[in-house]
Nucleic acid binder design. Structure first.
Lengths: 224, 224
DNA sequence: ACAAGTACGGTACTGAGTATCGTACGTTTT
DNA sequence: AAAACGTACGATACTCAGTACCGTACTTGT
């Protein structure tokens, strides 16, 4: 039988022990002992105790980066919504691991912060990509920030729901639906207005005050 | 003279030492020694070494919470954009401290992650507030997530620019501009569509200035 | 066979964070 | 005024994450 790699054995031992005794009560020595290696070896494979639970974020980040650079999408917002599917796919592919990790992350503050920091790196990658795409158009930095944040937020919302439900369904339909919101919101902000007469269709609730209507329109005009 | 509190002396000593020797090279003993107290006392006032730089996030979070609950805004998105001004104001009020902290946070990964986690708590507060506001309307969870993320993203973008510029200008105008994007984007998503909605179709020549457009629309609205 | 690189074990150290003592000081109670 | 009490600080000892370094086996190329 092909004996599993030490990294994999360490990660497995870590998750098992965290499940059994809790995160804080588990020492690195315990993990190394269960994996049958020394403490030194643990730190050679993972830079910290937390790392043993987030083994492949860096690899995924790199994959997303190459996916973005190779993207043939015609708008930046579509490119990053396309890329964020990789993230969800990564969780869904290892559903069991994701769910176990989710239960852990939910109750250990240190791990929660770590997870949030990881997500922030994805968001930063998206932001920089959109920023380069938009160049020095007006409000490029702001729009890049908003697009990246919205895409990540949509993804997180779908992912959290899926995790809370125990991974009981296929979340990609919901992700598409959520990203539909985002794309519809940002696509028209992204590209320079085309030549020719424009038609603007705006709908407001019947009870909207004139002032509210004016503010909404003005914001759009100034953002143009 | 009113001698400063120990907490304040500790925070001051921490920032000073971090500036002089760097974060990692500064031990808690050093901080306590400079503040003229014992190591025990340091940990009695701050739960961790990082905490000495983020002294008042919890207090600000509480203030924002009460501000939200007391909000008289007529839409959720306006309420949270209103609340996020408090965050920016908090940074601007202590500009010197904010700038020094920014330089530190930028180069110490541990502090950066901590900062990101703090921001995530604001975002969570906003998300929960909007979620309650929207109730169980369709896609309430998704829209709450998107609104909160966008408001926080707009704030972060403005704040980062201001910090990078060394706090050289008044950022509230930029914040209003950025939040204008967000409000315009989400206000129409917020309230359930009513029956008998109205459709307005307006066409303008390509060369029409925003001001001319605004005047024409305003005349129509006021005549309604 | 020999050299070199690689992966692991072992040891020792620093420093953050926790637990638990005792003690000094101010406040309340009688 | 004296005793009881709560609070804040200092001191000590401990656990454990993370780093540095050294020695050793085992593999790979020549």
């Amino acid at each position: 039988m092909p004996k599993p790699s030490i990294s994999h054995r360490l990660a497995e031992a870590a998750v098992a022990l965290f499940d059994e005794n809790g995160y804080d009560a588990t020492t690195v020595d315990d993990i190394a002992a269960r994996a049958g290696v020394s403490r030194s070896t643990f730190f050679r494979h993972y830079h910290s105790k937390e790392d043993a639970i987030f083994p492949d974020h860096d690899a995924l980040l790199a994959r997303i980066d190459t996916r973005l650079r190779a993207s043939a999408a015609d708008t930046a917002i579509v490119a990053i919504t396309d890329a964020v599917r990789l993230v969800l796919a990564h969780y869904v592919d290892d559903a069991e691991v994701s769910l176990r990790r989710y239960r852990l992350v939910r109750e250990v503050p240190a791990l929660r912060d770590r997870e949030i920091a990881s997500v922030a790196r994805y968001q930063r990658l998206f932001r920089e990509f959109v920023g380069e795409w938009l160049g020095d158009s007006p409000d490029a930095g702001l729009r890049a920030e908003l697009m990246a944040a919205s895409v990540v937020a949509a993804h997180n919302q779908v992912l959290r729901g899926w995790l809370r439900a125990g991974g009981a369904y296929d979340p990609f339909g919901l992700l598409d639906h959520a990203l539909g919101y985002v794309i519809a919101t940002f696509r028209h902000l992204e590209q320079p207005q085309e030549k020719g007469e424009q038609v603007v269709v705006a709908t407001f609730s019947r009870s909207a005050s004139p002032r509210a209507v004016m503010e909404a329109i003005q914001a759009h005009l100034e953002a143009r």
